[in-house]
Simulated assay, not measured.
Amino acid sequence: MKRTAKIPLNFFGIPFGLAGLGEAWSVLADFHHAPAAIGEVILLVAAAAWVIVGAAYLAYLGTAKSTLAAFTADLLDPSAGPLASLALITPMLLAALGLYPHAPGTGRVITDLFLILTVLLGAWFTGQWIYYPLDLDRIHPGYFLPTVAGGLIAADGAAIVGQHRLAEAMFGLGVLCWIVLGSLILGRLLFRPMLPAALQPTLAIEVAPAAVAGLAWFDIQGHRLDVVMALLAGYGLLMVLAQLRLLPVYRRLTFTSGTWSFTFSWAAVDAIGIVWLQSTQPVGYRIWQYLLIAAVTVLIGGIGARTVRAILRGQLLPAQPSTPATPPVRALPHTPSTTDAR
């Protein structure tokens, strides 16, 4: 059987970013400032992209020498492994935003199903990180995805489908994991060398936790601003402004599938910005809302266009090695025995 080209896990960032754009348009539509159909069409495109990427990834696994070994190697990859959670988080978000308004029963069931799977995968990653100690220099903001993004998006989804106690529990999961992992990840970024170029787009993910937490809390507590929203906005503003200093880093990057790290993060910031403008209604707030949605649409649309061009030119998939690479052997932690003491 002819082997299918390896599909990197960061390809699941494509439907995830499109779902984020659909959410931003849906938020604007909820305030009656945009047609609901725009967000719904984008969510449909995101769903189609998830199916295509998922099918391509399964085809790659199906033609590997060992399906289980290939899948295990992806999950254990210290750089790409956490991105596997996007395969579960994206359909959970799509079910809550796109399916539930039209088919409440089916939308709730699918949201709950992927919520459970997201929590289980996040728990597996947490246990794996405890069992096999992490190399601090290998971690990056993508480590937010399995538990922080998973928990907070699960909270938002549960709130949207009317399961508010579950939403509160998921909010607690996401926020507490954010506190723990956020300290670890930011410490690594502050005190260790800069991330390698392939992982530098994940720096944009630093703006996402506060924005996603804000969207979740807004839906949980009844669409109003309160002290929790203000606290999240303060930290979120810091992380957004910090990105300005990273512009020289971003300008040096070449386009890869990892560029999609920018999409959902800024779509979430855009959506929470629309919420704040609607709730506070400063002078010209509707103009600012349209500027925000236009900017993020151009950003994600531009990345999408570059992706299509790269696919047509055969430049998106990583180059395949001429000879099969031997996967590194991951030694188990050594447990001292009685013979070691001799």
Rank of each mutant, 00 (worst) to 15 (best):
W50S: 07
L203E: 07
D270R: 07
L58V: 07
L190K: 14
D74V: 03
T147Y: 02
I303C: 08
G234Q: 03
L28Y: 07
V308I: 12
L332F: 10
T111Y: 10
L186S: 11
S85L: 06
D135K: 13
I287M: 13
G20M: 09
L166V: 05
A123D: 02
D226Q: 04
R245P: 03
G187P: 06
G81K: 07
A155K: 01
P327W: 10
G187R: 09
Y285F: 14
D77G: 00
T335P: 00
T72R: 12
I42Y: 07
I311S: 00
E23N: 15
W288L: 15
I38M: 13
C177G: 02
I274Q: 13
Q200H: 03
R245V: 02
S322Y: 01
L93I: 15
P193Y: 06
G17Q: 12
T326L: 13
L291G: 15
W260T: 04
T111D: 08
W25I: 04
A46D: 02
A73M: 08
V275A: 12
V298W: 09
E206Q: 14
G81R: 01
A167L: 12
R313T: 01
D340E: 14
W217I: 07
F31M: 05
L21A: 04
G258N: 09
M239N: 15
G20S: 08
L76C: 08
L134Y: 02
Y60I: 00
G17R: 12
G302A: 09
T118E: 09
Y57F: 14
V27E: 01
A305L: 15
F218S: 01
G98M: 05
A155R: 01
V283C: 06
K65W: 10
L120D: 06
D219H: 13
Q281R: 15
G107E: 03
Y131Q: 14
C177M: 12
S66P: 06
W129V: 05
L253D: 02
A216V: 11
F144Y: 14
L277F: 06
A36P: 01
L186R: 06
Y285S: 12
P133R: 14
L18R: 05
Y57G: 11
M239D: 11
M229K: 06
A84V: 03
L232V: 12
R192F: 08
P328S: 09
H33S: 11
A213S: 10
T280D: 04
Y60F: 12
L99M: 13
R245G: 10
H33R: 12
Q289Y: 03
A211E: 08
L9F: 01
L113G: 13
Y290G: 07
P248L: 10
A155H: 04
V51A: 13
L246S: 14
A55G: 14
V41W: 11
R3I: 13
I42F: 10
G62H: 09
G222Y: 12
